[in-house]
Amino acid sequence: MLAPQTAVSLAEAQDLIFLEAELLDAWRLDDWIKLYTDDMTYLVPSPGMPADASPDTRLFLIYDDRFRMENRVKRLKKRTAHSEYPHSTTVHMYGNLRVAGHDADGTVVHGTFHVSRYKDGIMDMFIGRARYQLLRQGDAVLIRHKRCDLGMDALVPQGRLTIIL
């Protein structure tokens, strides 16, 4: 168990996750990645996988550590990232957030996501279950792990996942 003074409260978790949504919707990706720890992971399983699926034994859509996430950000800022040029418009809605527990690795937060993406006259939606692990580092609360399990069994009709959920 975390000592009480290092546990992250629901209010702090909401502040952080809603800030994440705001930065993503504004495409402020350099600021957004600062919300994450150096040992971060960001996972999106392929659609239709069990909640405990591991990226080490199953094929995921996204399996990013800090290095690949920084490169994802770098890529998304280029005009040659054709699928996101010009950038799509997104609205990230994170809801039903609750603190699911604390352990030595941080505070676990569960919730749902509903992300809409608009580009070229087409509106796509991504829905599912979000799980976070948050960690207090000094004065800041940071995201250590984020996992988004899509509530769909195929990317139909979306066709791609080029935004960060």
Partner: peptide, 11 residues
């Protein structure tokens, strides 16, 4: 086959 089929629609 590694579990994790990826199906998607392309317009």
């Amino acid at each position: 086959i590694v579990p994790g089929a990826q199906a998607f629609q392309v317009d």
